[in-house]
């Protein structure tokens, strides 16, 4: 549904996107995860045809966004970060306007269906300026789905909402994914973990990692640092571990040590063996990154140094 190849965007001398590539298959929810300024919005703006890439290719449902912009845009429903509303229009008038600009034949039905789906049908005749922030967010979504596009692109759809509204919007996104491919961005890790089939971690214009939340966790735990704690003094443990070939670095941390393996090798069995051979009592042996949050911070720190 979404194919991105070697996408690069420069603003003057600033490299906002550095040769990123990824794919999203039909019916998937793909989450763009990254700190502010990582390049999430830039990528989405290129995909939606708001601005052209400096180089590279983006294809939406078979249409290239640079060579076939009008057709590509027809395949997309887009909710920008600031919900684009006209305060002086009515709720249904606004959705109808968007439906008309997208050239829908059966506008009335589509507008009501979209409002129904986001739970705003009862406010159809209210002025946009009079509805709450949560409702505005949902109205933004209604506008994005009114033409039933194969691809939905949502830029930080839950930002600035209260917890109840966040839950509603997340629920809605999961619902929408039954009929649409959804690409959304967030800097909230638990959100990506809950919603996505695929997470793309992006930082300083580069994709640092990509995969399902479970996959990501496993992969990164393997390459990540490991915390080891034994009964007794740390020095004994340090001496034992120093003899292992695969270890790069040993740093004392709390009552134990943090071990960084060489070349992302799985060294937990080796550590267990060594500790047992040295007749130390192993109390703890675990990957340091246990949640997506840790992984994220770890990855972005590494990316930041590079």
């Amino acid at each position: 549904m979404i194919e991105v190849e070697d996408l690069t965007k420069r603003y003057g001398n600033f490299l906002a996107l550095d040769h990123i590539s990824f794919n999203a298959k039909e019916g998937q929810i793909v989450g763009f995860l990254g700190p502010n300024g990582a390049g999430k919005t830039t990528t989405m703006r290129i995909l939606t045809g708001y601005m052209p890439p400096t180089s590279g290719r983006a294809v939406i449902a078979g249409y290239d966004v640079t060579t076939d912009p009008i057709d590509a845009r027809q395949q997309i429903g887009y909710l920008p970060e600031t919900v684009p509303l006209y305060p002086d229009m009515t709720v249904s008038g606004y959705v109808k306007f968007m439906a008309e600009l997208r050239g829908l034949a059966d506008k009335k039905k589509a507008v009501m269906a979209a409002l129904e789906q986001v739970g705003l049908a009862h406010r159809a005749n209210s002025l946009v300026r009079n509805i709450s922030k949560g409702m505005r967010q949902r109205l933004g979504l209604a506008q994005a789905i009114v033409h039933n596009p194969p691809v939905l692109i949502l830029d930080e759809p839950t930002i600035g909402l209260d917890p109840q509204q966040v839950r509603e919007v997340r629920h809605l996104i999961r619902d929408l994914a039954k009929n649409h491919t959804v690409l959304f961005s967030t800097h909230i890790l638990s959100e990506a973990e809950q919603l996505c089939d695929d997470v793309i971690i992006i930082h300083q214009g580069k994709i640092l990692a990509q995969g399902s939340p479970v996959e990501l966790r496993e992969r990164l735990q393997l390459s990540g640092r490991i915390y080891v704690r034994t009964r007794g003094k740390i020095t004994a443990l340090q001496d034992t571990l120093k003899r292992l070939m695969e270890i790069n670095e040993i740093i004392p941390y709390q009552d134990g040590v943090i071990v960084t393996p060489k070349n992302n090798r799985e060294i937990r069995p080796a550590i267990a063996q060594a500790v047992a051979n040295a007749k130390l009592d192993l109390l703890e042996l675990r990957p340091l990154a246990t949640s997506l949050e840790d992984i994220f911070i770890e990855i972005t720190e590494v990316g930041g140094d590079a």
């Binding site: 708001y50 027809q74 684009p84």
Partner: peptide, 14 residues
Amino acid sequence: REGTLELMFTLPVR
């Protein structure tokens, strides 16, 4: 200013 132009730019409209 309202951000509606961004949406306008992403519609199938020249």
